[in-house]
Amino acid sequence: MQSDKEEYRSVCDILDKLIVKQIHLMEEKMCSELNIESCINNGSIHLAKSRYIMGQNSVSTSKLPVENSPEFSASTICEGIEEDGLTQFKVAESNAENTVNPLHWFGILVPQNMHKAKNIFQNSINFVVECVNIQVQLIENVKNIVILKKYKSMLNP
């Protein structure tokens, strides 16, 4: 009986912690989404500037690869790492041979803004991965809460 009470307490304590964690995670996720937003905004502005410089035909969707263009492999890939029983993702450089520099779609001598935009967009991948990690934690946390609540109701009918 005593151990049951003890367990009930610890479960409740963990539930408290999980709830607080959940709230923190929600806030964190918003922050990271905000980061993504500002990052992509910045990149888009640079892209727009380079479009202004180069003319709207030389920087447009018609320059992007289509379905029947030659295939190439992604230059950035994600790796999953197990952490506390959760899969967390990490950005990694790909070692594949046939990667493509996206700047070459728009020509060889591209304005400085285009380089900047590329870097910013590349950086935004990190934010996206961060956001995904938080999302994974959130989902896991919700699951944990559900399980613990179930357990708690079993302990204390």
Partner: peptide, 10 residues
């Protein structure tokens, strides 16, 4: 410890 407890409960 909490994580362990969670896992056992799971």
């Amino acid at each position: 410890n909490d994580i362990k407890t969670i896992n056992t409960i799971k």
